[in-house]
Computed example of a mutant assay.
Amino acid sequence: MTTSGTTPATTPEHDTDLVRTATGHLLSDAVKLEAPQVTEDSQLPGWTRAHVLTHLARNADALVNVLAGKPMYASAEAREADIEHGAGRPLDALVDDVRASASRLESAFAALDSDAWNRTVTLRNGVTDLASSIPFRRWIEVELHHVDLGIGYTLEDLPGTFVDRELANMARRFTEHPEVPVAIELRAEDGRSWRTGAAEAGPEGPFVVAGNPVALVGWLTGRTNGSGLSARGALPALPAL
């Protein structure tokens, strides 16, 4: 993947602070819900707001497992069962679970020294990465699922630094992805661009998708159908996350 965009330099400790702030914002919005609203549909198909909140809590605990060298989840089936079971709880229990699990993850972050941050860890489906990537991965979970709750926090409310980093991250994720057979050039209105998809473009060059960074992130993460973007034809189908 080649890009003329830039990703700001950061540290896992700084990203941990960003996670803490984002979690606080999410919780401050969640506690304003009326009790019945937690059983209403979220913006994720098939999930209520209770499912989203439960997933956020179990994801925090799963990342604690990863940092401890344990499997992220006991199994895919156990992960789904835990979310489904937890979604039946009342709002207060859900909010307390998100808060407590976030605290456990923050404690796990605080226990890591420079050597621990630089070790390789294993996530779901055999994916490996440095431990230092985990705070950013968690930040993604918190920001996007805050949007998914459908309680007033939208893609337009995402921090600009987050949008820039997630745009570069998603471009990397889909680079040479077997389910993205076309070469794609993402063009932001400010002149930055990212290449993703297939390595080789056809005679007409890469398929250009242009728009503002928020609209690009919305499409790449499956939160929109590409509204606000322009292209020479129908947008390519992207793999589910």
Rank of each mutant, 00 (worst) to 15 (best):
T3F: 00
T3R: 03
T6N: 13
P8D: 13
P8A: 14
P8W: 11
A9C: 10
A9S: 13
D15S: 09
D15L: 09
T16M: 07
T16D: 03
D17F: 04
R20Y: 01
T21D: 13
A22H: 02
H25D: 13
L26K: 00
L27Q: 07
A30C: 10
L33S: 05
E34T: 13
E34N: 10
A35E: 11
P36E: 06
V38E: 00
E40V: 11
D41Y: 04
D41I: 02
G46Q: 00
G46S: 03
W47S: 02
W47P: 00
T48Y: 00
V52L: 06
V52A: 03
T54L: 01
T54Y: 00
H55C: 05
N59D: 12
A60W: 09
D61L: 08
D61T: 13
A62I: 12
A62S: 14
L63W: 09
V64Y: 01
A68E: 15
A68Y: 07
A68W: 05
K70Y: 08
Y73H: 11
A74P: 06
A81F: 03
D82V: 12
G86C: 01
G88C: 03
D92L: 11
A93P: 02
L94D: 11
V95Q: 04
D97F: 11
R99E: 13
A100T: 12
S101W: 01
S103Q: 14
A111H: 06
A111T: 14
D115V: 15
N118S: 15
N118Y: 08
T122C: 08
L123A: 11
L123I: 14
R124K: 13
V127L: 14
T128N: 05
L130R: 15
A131E: 10
A131T: 10
A131S: 09
A131F: 04
S133D: 13
S133Y: 10
I134N: 05
P135V: 02
R137T: 13
R138P: 02
W139Q: 12
I140E: 14
I140K: 14
E141F: 01
D148R: 01
L149V: 10
L149F: 08
Y153H: 06
Y153C: 04
Y153V: 15
T154H: 10
T154E: 13
T154N: 08
E156F: 11
D157Q: 04
L158A: 07
P159C: 07
G160H: 12
F162M: 05
V163G: 10
R165M: 11
R165L: 06
L167V: 00
M170P: 07
R172D: 15
T175S: 15
T175Y: 15
H177E: 06
P178H: 09
P178Y: 06
E179P: 11
E179V: 12
V180N: 09
V180R: 03
P181L: 03
A183K: 04
A183S: 15
I184F: 08
L186Q: 04
A188Q: 03
G191P: 02
W194I: 11
G197S: 01
A198L: 01
A198W: 00
E200Q: 10
G202L: 06
E204A: 14
E204Q: 13
G211W: 09
P213C: 08
L216I: 09
W219R: 02
W219V: 09
L220I: 05
L220F: 03
T221D: 10
G222M: 04
R223N: 02
R223Q: 03
N225G: 12
G228E: 11
G228A: 10
S230E: 13
P236I: 07
P236E: 10
